[in-house]
Design a protein around this nucleic acid. Structure first.
Lengths: 343, 343
DNA sequence: GGCCGAATAAGAACCGGTTCATCAGGGGGA
DNA sequence: TCCCCCTGATGAACCGGTTCTTATTCGGCC
């Protein structure tokens, strides 16, 4: 009834524990005949290696940690994380690595969780997402000496390895496209202002608008918490202002859809009166009327890339300090169009 | 530099390994003075227990497994799983249990993953979701003798413990509400036909329609794969048929939103020409125009309930074989209304 | 003063693997 | 024929904890 151990196999085969270990791990030290015999017996008994015993000898835990600092509510909403996890999983599953997941309520707890997992030998490495400015996690991970891959821009990652994509490029492409359509007043409904990637997108947005020509394009940025509610409120505020923008770029699809609803409720035509662009594409963007022009990127591939990087780091292989994934690309759909009416 | 072990602490304190173990675990066998001294030294050295060594002595892995059989694409879309995971996490985090997650491509692989995790002593128990008719996983888990909680209806769960909510009740409430509004032709756009909960909802739907009176309410069920695309296609088909339904109940919010778009594209007014109800509420449902009437339930609480059940099972406490969570409740919004026009 | 039991601690065995040092036996070369 | 080396296999140590058994000390009580 109890799980068979290598001692059981050894007894049945009439050999020593050591011989069984060599045989089962494909190592030299046993003849082919006894190896075959041992393998047969182990299969017959349904033997499975005890990972704890292996770990005790310094073996890898074959597990990677991911602590997510997100309120449960937003987590359920954002396809981004599930897609990222899917991509990570796809890469890990091949090498039978598992993913250890925990939702945390703040960065201090996140650091604590990683410290414990690493200290207890439960994980071989971890991911860091949503870096803040002066993020305490960077120094904490560095001092733990744990293999870590930051998913996001290298600027705040210190000595940690990163996987990122060039959001600035995507923002620029979007602004240039809108300017070409005749828009001269563009707003950006951004995410949490403390996040590094929000700051970078903000800067790139302002720069792109200025590059269109001095004083040619009015630009405005408002910050939110990524929820549809705030997206709607900010849209309402923007559309009520005397200098109403003719185009709004949202930092996620949830807010873009909420913004679309607000525009329609204010009897504005999209795209004739207002153009809308969503960052991050999802079936959701294609399902509303009109379908949303979106900045799309292959998020599962992004996660897979990060996973490969982390696995290489764990294996001690030489890795680039920062790996750049493909940038998001603009998919024009029905929610953007030329400006109409009087200049 | 290396991680300190209890042997290090013992040496520093001038006591034996055994004494250190007792002291650190709050067990009797050491005096208060030496206990305090040992605790101080362990804190000073930054000692963390090695989970592998503990596991080797039959301790719990303090980890729970969840293998998800979902294509990456749908996974990213469905808020349901992330919310469920959030709820599970919330419960686990309190007792510093972790969640081991793996995305699998079929049931055979799912069984294999659980067998390995259990065999290797990496998890103390697991969840089973989305049960099929004659689900092979039930027998597999039973024979493994691993603590398992099925999230879903008990009918196919065999001897396994379950946590479920009464979908039939919710369906009935919905149908009665629609009938009261004057609807006499109601369609249901259901999920995957092989899933147990789809079957149960189907049956309850038919029953509720029949209970409205013999021949009084026409009903129709079509099955999909939960994607917005199929939801849209099925809606188009239903709305093009000669006996067009005046109300459609969708099995998730994604399909409901897609269906709403199709209706609007066919220049039907919602709710005047067509009423729409979504199973599972999300901010998404409230953000479209008109906002969707939805069957809402507290999914994180559902997950938390399942987690408590599993933890009790693992602890060997007596548990009910099946625990019923609150059923979904109907939140009427703008997408449902009385039937207009000629009978 | 001697005996007994509780409190405290030491020491060893054990969990299930890996790995190193060692050894027996056989074949080949000189 | 002797020696050496290689192969195949053994036994023990080890990883970092837990837990059982044993030893020592001390205090209380008769």
């Amino acid at each position: 009834m109890k799980r068979p151990t290598i001692a059981d196999i050894a007894r049945r085969a009439g050999v020593s524990k050591g011989a069984v270990s060599y045989a089962l791990n494909g190592q030299p030290g046993v003849s082919e005949a006894t190896r075959a015999n041992i393998l047969a017996i182990s299969k017959e008994l349904g033997w499975q290696p005890n990972s704890a015993a292996r770990a005790l000898n310094g073996a890898r835990a074959r597990t990677i940690g991911l602590a997510l600092f997100r309120p449960a509510r937003t987590l359920g909403m954002e396809p981004f994380f599930m897609e990222l996890i899917s991509g990570i999983e796809a890469e890990l599953a091949d090498r039978s690595y598992a993913l250890m997941l925990q939702v945390v309520t703040d960065h201090a707890q996140e650091i604590e969780v990683y410290r414990r997992w690493w200290g207890e030998g439960r994980v071989d490495g971890a991911f860091l997402v949503d870096l803040h400015l002066d993020d305490a996690r960077v120094e904490a991970m560095r001092s733990l000496n744990m293999p870590v891959v930051v998913i996001g821009h290298p600027s705040q990652a210190g000595p940690l390895s990163t996987v990122w994509s060039d959001d600035g490029l995507a923002i620029r492409e979007t602004v240039e496209y809108l300017v070409a359509l005749g828009h001269r007043s563009i707003a950006r409904v951004a995410g949490l202002p403390r996040l590094v990637h929000t700051t970078l997108r903000d800067q790139a947005f302002v720069q792109a608008c200025q590059d269109a020509g001095p004083g040619r394009v009015e630009h405005l940025i408002v910050h939110t918490d990524y929820t549809g509610e705030e997206g709607a409120r900010m849209t309402r505020r923007l559309l009520s202002s005397p200098r109403r923008p003719t185009a709004i770029v949202y930092d996620n699809d949830i807010m873009a859809v909420a913004g679309l609803s607000v525009a329609q409720e204010m009897v504005l035509d999209v795209p004739a009166d207002l153009s809308i662009v969503a960052w991050d594409d999802s079936p959701l963007s294609q399902v509303v009327r009109p379908p949303l022009t979106a900045l799309t990127r292959d998020i599962p591939a992004y996660g897979a890339c990060a996973a490969r990087q982390l696995l290489a780091l764990i294996a001690g292989e030489p890795v680039d300090l920062s790996v750049e994934d493909r940038p998001a690309t603009l998919i024009p759909r029905g929610s953007t169009g030329p400006v109409r009416g009087p200049r």
